[in-house]
Simulated assay, not measured.
Amino acid sequence: MRRSTVSRTLLTTAVVTTTALLATACGGSGDSGGSGTGSSSGGGKTLSIYAWAGEIPDSVVKGFEKETGIKVTVDTFDSNETMTAKLSSGASAYDLVEPSQYTVQQLIGQQLIQKLDHSKIEGLDNLAPKFRNPSYDQGNEYSVPWIWGTTGFAYNDTCVKSATSWKTLFDPKYKGKLYMLDNMLASYIAGLQVSGYRATSTDKDQIAKATDTLQKQKKILAGYNSTNYAQLLSTGQACAAEAWSGTAMAKVVQSNPRVHYVIPSEGGSIWTDGLAVPRGAKNTTSAYKFINYLLRPEVAALATDDGSSASTNQAARAHIKNKAALKNPAVYAPDSAIATSDFLLDPGTAMQYFQQGWTKIKAS
């Protein structure tokens, strides 16, 4: 994967808890730029972007610069928390940022991003239905989704004949050859869903039940692994493993026909990284031009062809040259599979229940 694997979902550190609490505490403060379209009209011929490393291909930036004459600077980060801290400090001068879905919620609460002016945006109807009115930002009021991926599991069919359910990762007959992601909320996605609950649950009792389920599962695991699980699956050292979609998993699925990536029948989860305009952005005209440029199907296709990521742009699929990626579930999960997948959201104060449970699991 191109980004730090522990940052794909919510982190388990106090940094996230603090950010979530700040989102609640700061919801009523800030200047007018936090709740509206901002006080500056934003001209100029420059654009400063703060994005995930590798997620906006150079070909996209160069194409935009050539067409518009706008000079683009892209700084990169490796965690949502790093990006949020920079915006919170007030020291940044970015015109666009690329938060993940739960961070969009937090940035809205802290009034660190502006409500988008949809009259200046063209091409939102090119987005796949899943991303047009997402649960974390209804009506796409604050963000435009750019790329996406999933949390599911993978298996090697020399060991596991066929699998569609999280139950595979809880089956004692595969003892010692099962792995879970070494990530708190990623593990809880499986623990909650296999127990019959939603991945987005913040219910104390449901989280407690999932904790008990994961504690029992630990006895049959080979370990928690967020680094080389794809390679372990490829060599047959692992029968099945919880997994994130993305470059590493996609390469193994593409090269080894015995390895299969699955969105579990219970739903799995879906993440997305999108573009938002920070409060106080100086070059909003350039920012909207860039958003519109990315919403063009032929440009959005470059997210896959040059960036190895799944594009949120449904219309882009006809323009993608890498047809193998479209058929690879570790890049593009089937529409039927993601229909029931939850966006992992900011659990807010319920984070304490996950942290307490995770401590018990790791200590058991």
Rank of each mutant, 00 (worst) to 15 (best):
S92T: 14
L107M: 09
Q193D: 04
I113C: 02
S195P: 07
K218R: 15
L22Q: 14
K86D: 11
G280F: 08
S35G: 06
V16S: 12
N256F: 10
W146I: 09
H118T: 06
R8F: 15
T46W: 00
S201W: 00
L11T: 15
T12S: 15
D171W: 04
E98G: 01
K177M: 13
K161R: 09
T213H: 01
S32Q: 10
M180L: 15
S195R: 07
T151E: 13
S39G: 06
T235Q: 10
L22I: 00
S165T: 15
K45H: 12
D137E: 07
K167I: 01
V60M: 12
K327C: 04
G246P: 03
T284C: 02
N183C: 04
K204T: 13
Q206F: 10
V194H: 03
R132A: 14
Q110V: 05
L185A: 04
K62A: 10
N256M: 02
R2D: 15
K327D: 13
G109V: 03
T168I: 10
V15K: 04
V74D: 01
I70K: 05
A163E: 03
D171S: 14
A163Q: 03
L124Y: 05
G191W: 03
T168P: 02
S79Q: 03
T284S: 14
S135W: 00
H260P: 06
A250H: 11
Q101Y: 08
N183Q: 14
G267E: 02
T18L: 11
L96K: 06
V104N: 02
T200L: 00
T284G: 07
G139P: 01
S364A: 15
L47I: 09
D157K: 03
L127N: 06
P329K: 05
V97Q: 05
S162A: 15
G176R: 11
D31R: 09
L127Y: 02
Y224M: 13
T200D: 07
Y50W: 07
L96W: 12
A243P: 01
S48R: 14
T76M: 09
M83H: 07
L124N: 08
K130N: 03
R258A: 15
A210T: 06
A363E: 05
L87T: 08
T304N: 14
L192S: 11
A93I: 01
S286M: 05
K289G: 08
W358V: 13
K161T: 12
D75C: 04
I147P: 00
K66R: 10
A85H: 01
Y188F: 15
S143I: 09
A238W: 06
G236M: 12
